[in-house]
Amino acid sequence: MSAVIELKDVHKSFGQVEVLKGVSLAVERGEAIAVIGRSGSGKSTALRCVNRLETIQSGEINVCGHPVHDPKLDVRKLRLDVGIVFQSYNLFPHLTVEENIMLAPVTVKKLRKAEARALAAQALARVGLAEKAQSYPEQLSGGQQQRVAIARSLAMQPQVMLFDEVTSALDPELTGEVLRVMEDLAKGGMTMLVVTHEMGFARKVADRIVYMHQGRVWEVGDGSMLANPQTPELRAFMAHDL
């Protein structure tokens, strides 16, 4: 079985600072991968490279058959296959929840409004917010906004979902409701790459955990890896996890 997401020796610099120093990683279809590591280890950057929000200097990235490293890539086609959810939700404030979700299906996939509305209802039900369709983002809690953002991505029916520290701005209760939605997704067989600081989630839900340190993949393993770190760096990192 070939990988849906494959990074080979990816290098990425911002000016003089090299953020990714040869990252390689393969994600199989249906796998949920948690990427952990301290701030500045390059995990968010690696994630953003996967859907070309950042361009890389060298190496190869293949996602659902799209050569992401290729400058001539049709980026919009790539993005039909890859959904992403951000730490800061990034909902469109002037649109209702339903309009937020319907926008891309209507404008990008050219669905009829009725079809898109049905799709939005379905996605909202999946994140447990069916009754909020007519609300505006500012009327929702952070956790609800983040779940809408997940629904907005899901409505495009991507093959892969990327999560960039999606609970970092939320209190523990709201974090829980968002993580439950993600756990359901993972159980439903969605291919997921999840950058997170939630060790519990990594342990419980992820098929594999990737520990990044100083721009490199430092350690890869399953949930037990967190209890038995092989490297002193991961051991030090886990020492802060209560």
């Binding site: 859907n51 929000l53 919009r76 086609k77 993005r79 039909l80 890859v82 959904g83 992403i84 951000f86 800061s88 990034n90 909902l91 469109f92 404030p93 002037h94 926008l103 891309a104 404008t107 990008v108 953002a149 907005r152 991505s153 495009m156």
Partner: peptide, 26 residues
């Protein structure tokens, strides 16, 4: 906010679509 543009971009919207639906009215 830049995040809204990234979100629209990531949903596969084109620049004219982003201007019309995301940027202009707000």
């Amino acid at each position: 906010p830049r995040g809204q543009l990234e979100a629209a971009d990531s949903l596969g919207m084109s620049l004219p679509q982003i201007y019309w639906h995301i940027i202009l009215r707000p």
